[in-house]
Design a protein around this nucleic acid. Sequence first.
DNA 1: CTGAAAGCGCTTACAG
DNA 2: CTGAAAGCGCTTACAG
Lengths: 350, 350
Amino acid sequence: MPTRLTISDIARKAGVSKTTVSRVLNNRPDVEDKTRSHVLNIIEENNYVPSPIAVGYVKNKTHLIGLVSPAEMHSWQIEVFQGVVAGLKDYNYQLLLLPHYPDEAAESSKEFDRILNNGLADGLIVLHPSLVQSYFQKLSNAELPVVAIDDASSLSNLAIPSIGANNYTGALQAVRHLIGLGHRKIAFIGANNNFRFTRDRLDGYKAAHTQAGLVFNPDFVKIYDEDIVNFRFLQEQIGYKSTLALLAQEKPLPSYTAIFAETDEMAIGVMRALNEHGLRIPDDISLVGFDDLPKASYTTPALTTVHQPTREMGKMVVKLLMDMIDGKIIGQKRHELDTEVIIRASTRAI
Amino acid sequence: MPTRLTISDIARKAGVSKTTVSRVLNNRPDVEDKTRSHVLNIIEENNYVPSPIAVGYVKNKTHLIGLVSPAEMHSWQIEVFQGVVAGLKDYNYQLLLLPHYPDEAAESSKEFDRILNNGLADGLIVLHPSLVQSYFQKLSNAELPVVAIDDASSLSNLAIPSIGANNYTGALQAVRHLIGLGHRKIAFIGANNNFRFTRDRLDGYKAAHTQAGLVFNPDFVKIYDEDIVNFRFLQEQIGYKSTLALLAQEKPLPSYTAIFAETDEMAIGVMRALNEHGLRIPDDISLVGFDDLPKASYTTPALTTVHQPTREMGKMVVKLLMDMIDGKIIGQKRHELDTEVIIRASTRAI
DNA sequence: CTGAAAGCGCTTACAG
DNA sequence: CTGAAAGCGCTTACAG
């Protein structure tokens, strides 16, 4: 096939006008059956496919969904991403990647402008929790349908609908599990609460204490306070450093018998720190993570954690965006999906 | 911004013709400096960005790269994928996902036609080892630049350039590592050799024996022969089942002291089978995998394996495709990148 | 039910 | 150095 066939070629071969071919292509009712099947035959014979770029151009609709994410995705983001891809199966849309490269953080506003003005996508999915607020501001002003996944925007009441796990309940369940095992002194390790999910998980931790009639000890809550530029690479270190700080408080042995880490990556850092101090999991200290990353079942011991329905979240975000594009929905709502505690080998009764 | 500005708006505001604006936009030299800077100012002031779809349409170039992959990517594919994204940073191209959904395998030819005729991408990256031959045939006939990653096409001499790890040398190194530790009887577990990489790894295993003056025992080579429809989900099972078959051959104890598994996923299956039979790694049997997946360092014991430079492969595939699109290269070559044995805890001297 | 014409937002010869 | 006109491959009123 040297040069691609156009609608004119098909019209000529079929002996009809381009208009009629276009009608057939778009399944318009106002075409005689005979004409339609004849044109369809010609199309079939010649293996003709209309140029998507021409169609997109004239219809002002590309059938492309832009996915804004860090260039280097974090394990959790990849899971959601795969859910998005799975969700797209049911729609006649394709996914365009709009990665954000962190080294351009300095001029990130410009970089984000480039992404936003890209003009190629009919809608945007934001899978980038640490996206700067000003960008969300711009997004919410844009005419483009946008939906976010576990984002920071919700903290400032921007008009962007979002989807996430029920982080509050998830944390509540996790800590309840520990309490159910007899633990009474449970430490919390997390990052600063610039993120909605970090805040919610801490709240869940506190609520579990309250509901069980326990008072949590603020000394046992380690919030890593430095600014988190690159959340992906810092998490393990946050877990590690926070645990060291926690251990330094009580010598030689800590009084808490369990630790709830805000993410699995942090939990892995916790494991490393405990290991180095000769503390055994779960014999000396029980440990619960959050996220249920694929690697959570490969740690030693396998990590008890809170499962997030990442695939479902990906699928749901697609459906939501599609509804927005179709004008069926004027979003702005927050949707939360249920979590589940996955009990593995890092927790035990005392 | 209610309606988007067009080049005509800018031309009017600047008091020049659309042609001149277009020249400025495209950095053509034949514009007076004064005119250029004036137009540039107007563009800047109005925050004007040319419609990529219109530009793509008229230039017949979308600046989009299509990535053909399974909808559900396998850990190794994700690593390469991230390399592709990283590689794209240096080019003015964006990535369009062209996932293949396996349930449509029945009519996969049609499904692949849809992808191929998509017409939106200026070039294609195929990250889908089990892609059917007929599709590669079509790809090689298409006018579109295509480059594959560790594909099956090379087996049939199709004219598609490809990139992969040096699987032969990688396997050679892995088995040499075992031989260096004193192992003399080393089993091999792999899948059928419909894939170039499976064949090469087996060849490397054999070569290591030959070069060391050892004869390998064909009874110790377990090739899982059933057709592999969904490589992702079967690997762990292949490792598991093949190990069981291997163990059934010699009772109660095997005479080999090490196993080389063709992939890390298979190695994980091997671990499970050995565990169930009360054989300890590495005390009773040493184990080496291949791929160095992220989870390889989280297994118990941490897996000694062959590292593939997946990020580099991703970057390289982008560069190659860009050169092809620019007409700098008429590919067809196979490129291989070096591997490295990562020694962890699953191997030891005997 | 069908077709001629205009137009989407750009670029590219062509002419000056 | 600059602009008028044609054209890329479709769709969409409009007229019949």
